[in-house]
Write a protein that binds this DNA or RNA. Structure first.
Length: 425
RNA sequence: GGAGAGUUGGCAGAGUGGUCGAAUGCGCCGGUUUCGAAAACCGGUGACUGUAACAGGUCCGAGGGUUCGAAUCCCUCACUCUCCGCCA
């Protein structure tokens, strides 16, 4: 959520910035609501002030034993008026809130302008795409011929966009998650956190998935109204919701390995083959809650933590800065990390690290006590994948494949696989 | 699922209709003291909104109601805890 004050100041500049985010702000509607809000608020507060004063006088008169009949008569006429105006006021305020809740975050000044993914800019890359004299097979081909990846099984019990992993390939998947979690906890100083996979509306509003992206979520039931998490960003970031965090607790760095659930409502034709885009996938998620002046430094650090995983796995990747038009709703700045997939001869997203500045913090009322002022101020939150487990599995399978369809186990994963060095039939 | 207790400021915890936005303690900030620190003592210290600054308004889990006036009374809901039942 944007600062309501920023709308009252330089609205034109704001509208222009939002346009670069692909969002058209309804200026007319806003002005109309804001005008009504102001009037109603002034009127309501003035009436309340009168009521409060007279009521206090009544109390004083009564405690002295004086007759308060006149005062009581005077104030009795105010009640209905106050009730009427204040309910009108809260209606307008709700409308304004709803409007505000649907506005995406503003981009940081360092973010390239662009309307779609073509505006994204590569920052750096690591590792050399492998060359070989045989043609690379994709993960589906490899997995199925090993007899360890079963889409028929998954389709039968659940439907499309699911997969069943079997045998040591399932073990490799588990090893990847373990390895990532261990690295972040032991080497990067994160607090391991095990969280609910079902969350309430408030949590999804806090991180920005609701109300705008309801159709992307799996809602489980009406009573209680719970949603499957689309990412552990939701439960982890909400750790600071409604809190005033002491300075000493910052920076807060949390990591969780969870399943994630997405409807993929708007992506019917895309990535239908294999486990690139699934309704359920696993991810190791990183979340930072930091002092506002440290958030951009934190974004670099977090991205570095995700990169470390790929470097240790020996997977070539590149990092791009998303342009204004390609960023997610809550982000001020996002780096995507893309892993090299030899079968497709291109880089595919495996991690996305974002600084949301105070956008989520304002939605969830997450503050810290600034020791310089002694006052509570909104803190900054960041989230990033460190990294997507399923896509890392694809990366390993494709990059470590041999001509005979077997797969080398990356060095760092062997301790998690009882020393296994190669996956073959 | 059944029975009971609770939800108040950063934290703990008083407050059961009228100068209560709220005692007290802890914490925090400032001062005295000290070579310095601790202890002790003194003073300050909720949030949001609003204003040039005052003023004003809102907030005692959430939402309704009663009343001239609600943290306090009534209703609904949410959450937490204890006991019983069931259960991985």
């Amino acid at each position: 959520m944007l600062d309501p004050k920023s709308l009252r100041q330089d609205l034109d500049a704001l509208v222009e910035k939002l346009r670069w985010r692909g969002y058209e702000f309804d200026v007319e509607k806003y002005h109309e609501l804001e005008h009504r809000r102001k009037n109603l608020q002034e009127q309501t507060e003035e009436l309340q002030a009168r009521r409060n004063k007279i009521s206090r006088d009544i109390g004083i008169a009564k405690s002295r034993g004086d007759d308060a009949g006149d005062l009581m008569h005077e104030v009795s006429t105010l009640g209905d008026d106050i009730k009427f105006r204040s309910s009108a006021l809260s209606e307008v305020q709700l409308e304004l809130q709803a409007m505000l809740g649907e506005i995406p975050n503003l981009a940081h000044e360092s973010v390239p302008l662009g309307m779609n993914e073509e505006g994204n800019v590569e920052v750096r890359h690591w590792g050399m795409p492998r060359v070989s004299d045989f043609s690379f097979r994709d993960h589906v081909d490899l997995g199925e011929s090993l007899g360890m990846m079963d889409y028929g099984f998954a389709g039968k019990i659940a439907g499309s966009r699911f997969v069943v992993l079997k045998g040591v390939l399932a073990g490799l998947h588990r090893a990847l998650a373990q390895f990532m979690l261990d690295t972040h906890v032991r080497e990067h100083g994160y607090s391991e956190t095990n969280v609910p996979l079902l969350v309430n509306k408030g949590s999804l509003f806090g991180t920005g998935q609701l109300p705008k992206f309801e159709e992307d979520q799996f809602k489980t039931s009406e009573d209680p109204p719970l949603y499957l998490i689309p990412t552990a960003e939701v439960p982890l970031t909400n750790a600071v919701a409604g809190r005033i965090v002491e300075d000493a607790e910052l920076p807060m760095r949390l990591v969780a390995h969870t399943a994630c659930f997405r409807r993929e409502a708007g992506s019917y034709g895309r990535d239908t083959r294999g486990m690139i885009r699934q309704h359920q996938f696993e991810k190791v998620e990183l979340v930072h809650a930091v002092r506002p002046d440290e958030s951009y430094e934190s974004l670099e650090i977090m991205t570095g933590h995700a990169e470390t995983i790929l470097q240790k796995l020996g997977l070539p990747y590149r990092i791009i800065t998303l342009c204004t038009g390609d960023m997610g709703f809550a982000a001020s700045k996002t780096y995507d990390i893309e892993v090299w997939l030899p079968s497709q001869q291109l880089y595919r997203e495996i991690s996305s690290c974002s600084n949301t500045e105070d956008f989520q913090a304002r939605r969830m009322k997450a503050r810290w006590r600034n020791p310089e002022t002694g006052k509570p101020e909104l803190l900054h939150t960041l989230n990033g994948s460190g990294v997507a487990v399923g896509r890392a599995l694809i990366g390993v399978m494709e990059n470590y494949q041999n001509q005979d369809g077997s797969i080398e186990v990356p060095e760092v994963l062997r301790p998690y696989m009882h020393g296994l060095t190669r996956i073959s039939k």
